[in-house]
Design a protein around this nucleic acid. Structure first.
Lengths: 111, 111
DNA sequence: GCAGCGTATCGTATATCGACGATAGGCATT
DNA sequence: AATGCCTATCGTCGATATACGATACGCTGC
């Protein structure tokens, strides 16, 4: 679509800034918001923030979820870039990606 | 679940603040985040912000979605409290709930 | 090499989302 | 009163999220 509405401004007159760039912008924010759209993931992020870094096992113990479920949430958080995990010997150490978190805050702040 | 961990602090030593209050807190943020977890809803919020208020019909015209779909997204946004709509004659005028938006920003800011 | 632990992935079942068309309800105007 | 426009709700369908157990993978230590 995206047709018409060139001169259909009858309600409030504000800036016209919501054309194409807005779409990509919205998808970016939606993706990051979606990462936090589940209580379990919010708690994981919070847990990681309160410890600067943490191994997967500790996260599982803090949550009333199966290990596989937690692992799946971690995968989602990794895909969105909010967290990153590096293999530390036999276990995996997760930590927050401050850059991604900052981006999320910035996008929210633009609202 | 939820056993041990009383003295299992071997990784990083930070505050121990993530007990019960954290659960409700996480659900709050998850709910608000979820409202923005879809590009269409982000765009709606952005659109409303750029106009201070707007009738439903204009939103539908801006989006490549059916009227019923937009109405459903608006319903979700209303349920989370991010937007509020008041009947204005034959149409409905939607506007952002600044308080809810501020709460979202505050919660994100606490991360 | 083999056993053991920690993590990721697979496969599956259920619940919910997201989209649409069709329809119902409300308010102005005729 | 009747018509017409605007919005909300209903019913449905496909796609996806969420949860779990079972299993495969990788590293450490015996």
């Amino acid at each position: 679509m995206a047709k018409a509405k060139a001169g259909s401004k009858k309600c409030c007159t504000t800036s016209e800034t919501l054309a194409l760039p807005d779409v990509a912008w919205a998808e970016d924010l939606a993706k990051l918001s979606w990462a936090l759209a589940h209580p379990a993931r919010v708690r994981i992020v919070r847990l990681l923030l309160s410890r600067t870094s943490c191994v997967c096992g500790e996260i599982v113990e803090e949550m009333p979820l199966a290990q596989s479920t937690v692992s799946q949430h971690l995968k989602i958080l990794k895909e969105t870039g909010l967290v990153q995990g590096e293999i530390d010997g036999p276990r995996v150490c997760y930590c927050i990606n401050q850059a991604a978190l900052a981006k999320l805050k910035a996008l929210i702040g633009e609202l």
